[in-house]
Computed example of a mutant assay.
Amino acid sequence: MPTSLGISVGTSGVGSALRVDTETGSTTEYRRLAADSDRSRELGDLVFDAVSLMCAHLADRPVVNVAYRTDEQAETVRLAAEREGRHVRLVPETAAMLAFLRTVGLRSEAGTVAIADLGATGTTVSVLDQSTGTVLRSARTEEVSGNALGTRIYERVLRSTSTMRTRRRIDSELLAARCQGAQEVLTTADVARIDIAEAGPDASVTLTRADLHELSADLADTAAAFTRRICTGSTPHPRTLALVGGAAGVPALADAIAGAFDGDTMRVAEPAS
């Protein structure tokens, strides 16, 4: 029963996907470990926390592939692998993305493809040669990110609690986590409820898809203009754009970028993974 484990390294944490091939087909299990806010554990250590978590029930060690964005991330993982006495295969993030996209329908053809990665701390748009996987152009902006939108949601919810009579001080970290959960819910639902336990068991703030759209409107405009500039400035122009990263699940951001791109847009089922 062949197995392989893919690890994606990011600023906000580590995503992992365990693929198991059987006679009846293959299954993939996704998990995510968030980075410690106090950075008590290094990114490389977090990678092997994920490896241990995903492989605890396996009889054999799987092949482990780690996708990295920067040389610094690669070195951090390499040093952690030496400490753990484990072998991992380090893969540039763009190469990993291209390989993944081909498993979900991207045609392998001549020309270029663009990938817009809307992550926790910024948005990166890369244009790759389809045949070789070579990155022809890549740029990053920190103006559009999941964290930027998350901060706006948190501040909106916190303002809504100002008229509540709370029994104790609101836990900011817990509220931020609940706001993050609401943001994820609103990628598919119209309404999300955020419990305010400090104000009583029934106290809550309701956030709607319309609220999310309002809070992300200017971020969407910025993301669209940034993506258009990178793609139109590349030769040849990419004919397909793929949206990945956690913030790609935000409808307003994804719709604005797709609308600004002159070509086909791919949206994947698990953009954060």
Rank of each mutant, 00 (worst) to 15 (best):
L158N: 08
L158F: 14
T141C: 07
V125I: 00
N65R: 15
R78T: 11
V113E: 01
A99H: 15
S52P: 02
Q73F: 11
R41C: 11
E142M: 10
V88D: 04
L136H: 00
T151S: 11
A120Y: 12
T151L: 12
A35P: 05
R107W: 09
G146N: 03
L46A: 03
E84H: 14
A120R: 06
L101T: 05
E42L: 13
E155W: 10
E109V: 14
E93S: 07
R89C: 07
L46I: 13
L90M: 12
T76E: 13
Q73R: 11
D38K: 04
R165T: 13
E142F: 10
R89T: 13
A120H: 12
S145E: 06
A110Y: 10
V135K: 00
L90T: 01
D117S: 14
A139M: 06
G44Q: 08
V157R: 04
D129T: 02
G150A: 08
M54K: 02
T166I: 12
S145Y: 07
T151I: 11
R83F: 06
V113C: 02
Q73L: 10
I115V: 14
V77L: 12
E109L: 11
S108H: 14
V113S: 01
L43H: 12
S145C: 13
G44H: 06
C55N: 11
D38I: 01
T103G: 07
V63G: 07
V144S: 03
L46Q: 04
D117G: 04
D36K: 09
L158M: 08
M164H: 08
R152P: 01
A74D: 08
T134C: 02
I153D: 00
F48S: 01
V144D: 02
V77R: 04
Y154I: 04
T103S: 09
M54G: 00
D49L: 02
E155G: 04
S52K: 15
V64E: 00
R167Q: 14
Q73N: 13
R61V: 06
D36H: 14
R137T: 00
S162A: 09
I170G: 07
D38E: 07
V77Q: 05
V135W: 00
E143N: 13
V135R: 00
N147E: 13
R152F: 05
V157S: 06
R152G: 02
N147V: 07
P92M: 13
V63C: 08
L118P: 02
L118S: 06
G119L: 02
V127A: 01
D129L: 02
G150I: 03
Q73D: 15
N147S: 14
F100H: 15
R89P: 03
T94H: 06
P62I: 08
R140D: 03
G85N: 05
G133A: 03
R41Y: 10
T121A: 11
T112P: 01
C55I: 08
L79T: 14
E82C: 10
M97T: 04
L53E: 09
R165F: 13
Y154Q: 05
S108G: 11
V113P: 00
